[in-house]
Structure formats: C-alpha cells, structure tokens
Design a protein around this nucleic acid. Structure first.
Lengths: 199, 199, 199, 199
DNA sequence: AATGAATGAGATTTCATTCAT
DNA sequence: CATGAATGAAATCTCATTCAT
C-alpha cells in the first residue's frame, strides 16, 4: 500500500469517527455536514472527496464499524465450541462493545433505525451477517442437542437481537435507575437459556 | 359536549390519522407538514390550530394512540389471573395490534425510535405504563411461584419488550421471507417461558 | 343617538384601547390581530366588524386619540394670550399627556413612525393640525413682537415638535438615568425661549 | 490581509448597501430577505453567511454606518475650538450627511425608530457616542462661559438631537413644500443659539 | 352581530452539495 | 487535494382575513 492511500484511509476514518460523535449527539437528520466537518477539523465541503454524500457517509460508517464488530465477535467466539458458553460469551461481548463506545452504540441503536426508512434500497448484508452469528450459535446448539429443536432459528435470532438491543438502548438513554451492563448481561443469559419458569 | 368541540376533536383525530399514514410512508423527517395537510384534506397551515408544530404532532399522536393501546391491553388482560396465560395473551394481543394497523406500527416501531432524541426530555409516562404492564405480569408470576424469583423485573421487562418489538419491526420492514405474526407470537411465548434449553 | 349606536361606539373604543396596549407592548408589526382581540376580550375576527383591517385600526386609533389630544390642548390654551406663557404651557401639557398614558405615548412616538412608511398615502391631517398649534403660537409671538421675526415658522414648528418628541421618547424608552418630565419641561422651555447663549 | 478576507468584507458591505436601499424603499418589516438578496445580486439564502439574520443585518448596518458617521463628525470638528462655531458646524455636517445618502438617512430616521423595540436590549453604544458629541460641545461652551451654565447637558443633548432629527425626517418624508436643508441648518443654529425671543 | 376555525400566501431560515480559487 | 463561499430548493411556521354557523 502506498503512502497516499494510507493517508486517504486515515482521513476517511477521521471523518467516520467525527460523524459517529455528531450523529450520536444530534441524530442523523439534525446533524449538519458542516458540524461533522468542524468536528473532523476539515473544510465544509471536505467529506465529498471521501464520501458520496451524507447518506453514503452513514452507510459507510455502518459498514466500516460493523466489519470491525463482526471481526471482534468472530475472534472472541471462534474457539468456543459449547453453544451455551458461546451464547453467554456473545452476550457479554455485545455489552462490552456497547460500553466501550457509547457514541457508536447510540448511532447503531437509535440512528440506524430511522435511517432504515430512507436507506431502504441498501441491502444490509452486514446486519444479516450479524444476525447469522446468533443463528449459527442456535443451530449448533440444536445440532448437538443442547437447545430445543422446536426453536425457529429465523424468528429466535431476531428475538434475541431485539432483547439485547433494547437492553442496551435503555442503558444508553436511561439516566435514572439504570441497571449495570453486567447485571443486564447475566440476566439476559439466564432468561434466554432457562426461561421465566421457576424450576 | 357541544357541537363545536366534537367537530374539533374529530379534526384532531383526522390529522393524527393522516400523520400516521404519512410518517409511515416517508418517515418523520422526510414527511412534510404540507403533505400531512394534503393527506388530511386541510389547508397547508391547518394543523397549527390543533398542534403546536410537527414535533408536538408526533408526541400527541403517540400519547393518543398509546392511551388507546393501553386501554385495549387492560381490557384484554384484566380477567386473566394465571400469569403464564396472561403473558401469552399479552404477546398475542401485541402482535394483533401490530397487524391491525401496520402504519401505526411502523410509526411506533421505526419513527418514534429516532425521536427518542427529541423525546428525551419529554417524560414518557405512557411508555412507562406500558412497560409496567409487563412488569406486573412478571411480579404476579413470581408471587405465586410460577416464575423464577431470581428474575430482575426491571431488566426483564425491557428484555421482553425489546424481543417483541424487534420481531414486530422486522415483520413490518421485511419484505422477503418474513415469518407470520402467529408463528412469531407462539415462538416468543415458547422461548420466553421455557428458554432455549432442550429438556 | 340610539342605544345601538352607543354600544357600537363603546366597542370601537374598547378595541382601540386594547390595540394601544398591544401595539405599545409588541410594536405594530409584531402585534397580531389575535392578541388585540384577546386583550379586548372579543373573538379573533371580531375587529373586522368595526375596522377595515389592521392598518385601518392603526389609522383610526391615531385619528381618535389625536382628536382627543387636540381638544385637550385647545381647552388648555384657549384662554392664554401671552405667547410665551402659551408656549410654556404647551410644553407642560405635552409632557403631562405623555405621562398620563405611557402606552399611547409609545404608540405615537415609536410605532407611528414606522407606519409612516406603509401609510404613505394617508394624508395625516390631524398631525398637521397638531403642528399648526405650535405654528399658531409662534405666529402670535411674532405678531406682537415677542418672538424674533426672523423665525421661519414652518421650519421651527417641526424643530420644536422634534425636540419635545425626542425628549419624551427617551423618557419612555430609557430605563437608566432618565430625567423627570418636569425637569425636561422646564429645560425645554428655557432653551427654546432663551437659547443656549449665556447672557 | 489576505484576498479572501478582502472579498468577504466587500460582500458584507455590498449586502449592507443593498439592505439600506431596500429598507429605505419598503421599510424594515415589509422588506423581504429575498428582495435584499436580489438587490445585492446574490442567492436567496446568501446573506446568512454574513449575518445572523434579518435583525442582525439591521444592527450590523447601523453599527457599520454609525462608525463611519462618527468618524466623519470627528474629523470635521476636531480642529474647531469655538463651541459656537462647533455647534453650527455640527448642524451643517449633520444635514450634509442626510443629503448625501437619502436612503441611509431614511433607514436611520424612519426604520431604526421602529426597531428601538427590538434594539431595546441591544446596548446602543454608537448612539450614545453620537449624543456625547453634542454633550461635549455643550460642556465646552459652558466651561468657557459662552453657554448658559444652567443648561442641563443630558437633557439638552437629547433635545438638540431630536430637533435636528425631526427636521431631517420631515425633509426626507415630505414631498410637498419642504424647506431646503440649507435653510433648516441656518434656522436650527439660529434658534438653538439665540432662542425664540426677539432681542 | 359574534364567533373562531380555516385558509393559503408569504416570510425566514437551513443546509446538502457544488465548484472556483 | 483542500477550502469555504455560494447556491437555491425546500421546510416550518405565522397570521391577516374570510365566512359558515
């Protein structure tokens, strides 16, 4: 890779990180390109060299970060074979990521929702990959007889994602009486695995 | 109640219903006040007689519809004493409501999320009431020994809400290979109550 | 005069007084017809029965009040023959009127200025009558040899009006270190009559 | 100073001059930002790069022009020591300025009056400086015994300002039988210095 | 005659995007 | 490549006036 390319990539990243901050602060629609530029320390029209526009910036942000996240999930989970532990670990890593970068989390949790509307055409492969991480764990669990074979994987993966997602969102938004992410993590694992019933 | 007041209330409702349609179609930020007015068959500035502005319209819409929803939940659940059946019924009613008014569901599921930004200050009592419906069921279940006393209600109510919410959202957004809401309903109940483990 | 006519006149007056208050508070352009109606305790569109519109209301207000003012000046000054005393008395009455109704004064001082623009066509006879009050005093003074015959009455009447007007305006607007209207009155008379020169 | 800054300053000035023309023609409230832009030959939203809004434009206009005016007064008067001549010269220069830029004069005389409403908070230092020019002349005159020591400077400076101001305003507004500014200038000096009394 | 909801033109302002320097 | 001024479309909101009740 030549020097010029490296420099360009650095700038792309800089703009993405700035956008994450500003989107988290203001929301996608209320964030102005100008403010992102200011945050990045570049000129107003500067991002147009690196991204096609505000929409493209959001998509690129999502793709870039999602790739990173998927990589991290994979590297954390690849050596675990027990699906139960894998699920627990998945939940733990998920909340860790949220905690590490609250700004990014807010963008994912809150802002990407709304954008699903105007980004309808955008085929969201990374999100599908992400859901399939969960699906994979479920499938493994069923295969080796740990998980209930009656589970509909396509439904349940979304259910699990939603459960974790909402717990994270409330933690991010909530100022008062919020649980710790550690508690959330343990409770989620407990509930998902064993259900609500008393034994 | 006099005639004028009745007419006014009708108009308020008409505008709310129109807004639901347009928000569902375009999203909150991409919906223009003009378009809502056109949908409602009133003049461009017409909604300002009934609502303080676009934001207020969204909040009012939320309050109005949420009240209706809470009433329906309560009337459906009030005579059920078994918490297990109550939970199942809650889930069923939830998905029924989604199916009945897809537009409203879309606004609630997708558009109101983004607005959590500007709804941050707005103390969202109706949403709290809704969460407490779930909390109540959980509490009852624990009290009579059906549900696991180790359950943290404040965490779990959010988890359940999130799980159902995301299942509904994917059903609304998903054009391809979506599950039926009936399947979703049953699967959700199954998973929540018994957990993922095989017996 | 029949009863109906009396009632109508009362309402006209009520609206004028309300308009005075609101114009004083907000200025002509920033005052809404609705706010004037609220102040008057009538319906929003109510003033259109009595006045042709917002502009007409301002003109009518001016005419009505100016007539009153001219009457009061005339009744105060009619028995004074000494032009010097007449001038002093004119000044005194002028500031008395200002003090009596600060709202009205503000409308006259500040708001009627701006309106001179859009009311350009409106031939302001009452204002001319008012200026001619001053002109009359000057003319008398010159005739009987008290005032300097070199005085150009048409210029000087405006000068005197401007001097008093500005003193009144600063008193109305000024919150800090304002003079009393009594001091202003005496100083004005002193300066106008004797000039700035030391004797 | 770099080229870009010079260009920006030029544009600011262009917009101010255009605003003066349009405000003079239509009045502040009836002038639209669009029309000012058209007059300046820039795009509709163009002035927002240079000014915060319509109000800010008016204030900036005032500050900019007033600074110029104060400079001109000072350079004209600085070498005159005789307070009597200084006063006469002040009046002459004042009417000269009015004559030179009738548009600006109209804005100052007519439009800024109305704005005293929204300029109320805005601490108007430039206007105070201007009044103090007059105060300085009066003080000098009293000190060297030319002017009557009984003069209250704070009242009289306002009186003189008002007298000149109104003479100017009537000249600007008046289409029929107006005096020449030369006559006004001489008459004002004569009246102020010697008073109305015949000797 | 009074009411006040409805109208709809028009105003200010924002901001993504472009492009000359 | 970077800059940031300029563009101009579009959005929200206001409000004088009308008119059915």
């Amino acid at each position: 890779m030549n020097k010029r390319q490296i420099k360009k990539d650095k700038k792309r990243l800089l703009i993405i990180e700035s956008a994450v901050k500003v989107f988290a602060r203001k929301g996608f629609y209320n964030a102005s390109v100008s403010e992102i530029a200011r945050e990045a320390g570049i000129a107003d029209g500067g991002m147009y060299t690196y991204f096609g526009g505000k929409d493209d910036l959001l998509i690129s942000l999502f793709e870039y970060k999602m790739e990173d996240i998927l990589t991290r999930f994979n590297s954390h989970l690849k050596d675990i074979s027990d699906p139960l532990i894998k699920l627990k670990e998945f939940i733990k890593v998920y909340f860790q990521l949220i905690q590490e970068d609250k700004n990014l989390a807010e963008v994912f949790q809150v802002e990407l929702r709304q954008s699903s509307k105007f980004l309808k055409d955008y085929h969201n492969q990374k999100f599908i990959d992400y859901l399939n991480l969960i699906a994979g764990i479920l499938q493994d669990g069923i295969n080796i007889g740990f998980f209930n074979p009656a589970i509909d994987i396509d439904i349940t993966k979304i259910m699990i994602f939603g459960a974790l997602d909402e717990m994270a969102r409330q933690w991010i938004l909530g100022s008062e009486n919020v649980y710790s992410l550690k508690d959330a993590s343990e409770q989620a694992a407990q509930n998902l695995v064993f259900g609500l019933l008393a034994n």
